[in-house]
Amino acid sequence: MAKRIDIKDVNIYYGKFHAVDSVTLSVPPRSVTAFIGPSGCGKSTVLRSLNRMHEVTPGARVEGQVLLDGEDIYAANVDPVEVRRTIGMVFQRPNPFPTMSIRDNVVAGLRLAGVKNRKRLDEVCERSLRGANLWEEVKDRLDKPGGGLSGGQQQRLCIARAIAVQPDVLLMDEPCSALDPISTLAIEDLITELKQDYTIVIVTHNMQQAARVSDQTAFFNLAGVGQPGRLVEVDDTEKIFSNPSQKATEDYISGRFG
């Protein structure tokens, strides 16, 4: 079920503002790709274009192709709702639905897809929570609201919610930036486990995190304020962090700017 993503010459606009200039890169299945770069360089924007969440923002549009196993998710006959059902997303701030119990949060995606069988929902709930390393902590309080969990637990709940629908790809937009180091560690361990089954793309401001969890790293930058962000280089994580081919990448990861 893990699929590969090919981003081909993608340009992203907010109204008249050209936010991201011509990005081309490939994400192999069952791997973790990290997007790094300074704020405003368009890495989150590119990530959000991968499941068409980008177009939720009024005036936003994407030009170019995003191929999921060869099929363009921006083709005219593709329903963005279907795209989002096959490409899951985890956000910067944990966002469990506050009025729903832990169980209902996990199976929310399945419910939307029309699954009603109680037994099936319970199975998926347990499997997803186990998959997100949260089962042992919450199994006795599945009917309690998700908002009562700690930040790290909430984020793992959101990951459980995302994987419950068994997506082809999992997108993570700075999933640990609102978490303490212990919770961050738990999420990073989880990412390493999840890549056995999913194609993962993660945006992070934390370069150590990129170095720890990813197989491939893409560095984004922007020439200046008001200029579009662009992809500087993408390569194996080890190479990016030891011997990047672009000077800008080396400057960034060694802390000379950004």
């Binding site: 939720v56 709702v81 989002r84 899951g88 956000f91 701030r93 897809a113 919610r161």
Partner: peptide, 15 residues
């Protein structure tokens, strides 16, 4: 309504 909740629902494939 918090934007995070709206986007959370949309990202799950909600219409």
């Amino acid at each position: 309504t918090p934007k995070e909740h709206i986007e959370g629902a949309l990202a799950l494939g909600a219409t």
